[in-house]
Design a protein around this nucleic acid. Structure first.
Lengths: 234, 234
DNA sequence: GTAGATTAAATTGTTAACAATGTTGGAGCC
DNA sequence: GGCTCCAACATTGTTAACAATTTAATCTAC
């Protein structure tokens, strides 16, 4: 007897990979060879192929015809677009939550926040990343909108990708408990402040990235192989 | 020589179907038999299957294991979620446009609006629907955010589905040129008003639907087969 | 005639072999 | 040595046959 429905086998594969990406266990650019996946995930090749195509649609992997799939390497432009989109969606989520249309269980948010704080103190990096993402996702879930939740789920995974590509230091997450501030503002039913907190939080994450550095850097062989670059090799 | 790249064959199929759905040539619930699609779209069965799975991911078709695919029939709950999500995203788009970060070519919007007005006067229904969708999509494109644009593209298609399921009369689109109002507000660089116009516009569309009617109606055989329903058969 | 069972057809799901393409490594040549 | 060319390998893409499942039709019993 198979516990999971047969149709969701593809989903299982896709989610396994997506999660590994979200938790930064699969770095951007990693090649995903079908045969390897088939045997490490104990799956049918067709299912693996379908899963890869799904992930390609979600921009988590990129597929080049006849050359296989690999974990995506979002461009700076895409990175900015993702964070802007997150801001748009998450501000919308916050507005829904604060508008008081649904009776909101703040304790769930606090519980998630505690879980995250515990992870920050002594958890491994991937757990920290996961719990942080879960907080944002929980907000969307509490807003009771499956469409926004699903979109945000994708964006969070893509954010992980972006962060592991463009992070400056290996500062896992800012320690300044911005999630706590968001909870406070929601609890206080202050729409303006809550939205501000969220905007600020996302902006903060984006600003800790190296985006500006790579922005204008079209691969410019002239300067790349100048004395400056060469001197670094010594 | 094949003009389109081989990899995008799946995309071609998916887009053909999605477009037919968006223009309401394929009504909700229509069964999509693989063999039929293979031969009417001159395609490989694998490609058709992949395309169907893609569309299932976009919630445009629904696939039931061993029972094939059919055009989705979004629930009332999903319908509301879609419109709320659209509102969130499109308000975000408007804010980006009005914020003046990008120099905006208003004439493109006006041109699209004219196209739409022309369609409303004498075009066939499907063209009206298409051009109306294109207006919203154009806003997202002008905002220069591919992520938001893609999300909105999906939502617009799903909206078409919802509208053909839940529309009250066969009023194709409101004649009151709300798109024109939106353009005006953007042109006047008035963020508050522009966002209001968009909100109002989307709310308007939603309110012209029968959602409330079906909301609580769990299929309740007792009342369905009462004298009222029977009398309608005579 | 209707309910239930049985068979046939239609449809989807799976598999494995084959084809096409891309990649790697080495032999021979300059 | 460095280069080109070619063959072997690895990987992806395609196809067709087969298996499993659902749907429709037919038949029998009552």
């Amino acid at each position: 007897m198979k516990p999971a429905s047969k149709a969701s086998e593809i989903e299982r594969i896709a989610d396994t990979i997506a999660r590994a990406v979200a938790e930064q266990r699969l770095p951007p650019g990693t090649r995903l060879v079908e045969a390897q996946l088939v045997d490490s995930l104990k799956a049918n090749r067709n299912h693996v192929r379908s899963a890869l195509q799904r992930l390609a649609l979600r921009r988590i992997v990129s597929i080049q015809p006849n050359r296989g799939a690999s974990i995506a390497q979002p461009s700076v432009e895409e990175a900015r677009a993702v964070f802007t989109a997150r801001s748009v969606i998450e501000r919308g989520v916050i507005e829904i939550l604060v508008s008081g249309v649904r009776k909101l269980d703040i304790s769930l948010l606090k519980k998630q926040r505690d879980k995250e704080q515990a992870a920050i103190r002594n958890g491994p990096r991937e757990v920290i990343i996961r719990e942080s993402g879960q907080f944002h996702l929980l907000l969307a879930r509490l807003a009771g909108n499956a469409v926004l939740e699903e979109m945000l789920n994708d964006l969070i995974t893509r954010s992980s990708l972006i962060i592991s590509l463009y992070q400056q230091h290996n500062n896992p997450q800012c320690g300044c408990d911005e999630h706590g501030n968001i909870i406070q503002a929601i609890e206080a039913q202050d729409p303006v402040k809550a939205v501000q907190c969220m905007s600020h939080h996302l902006h903060d994450i984006e600003m800790h990235l190296n985006l500006a550095f790579w922005e204008t850097r079209t691969v410019d062989f002239g300067s790349v192989f100048s004395e400056e670059a060469e001197s670094r090799l010594l």
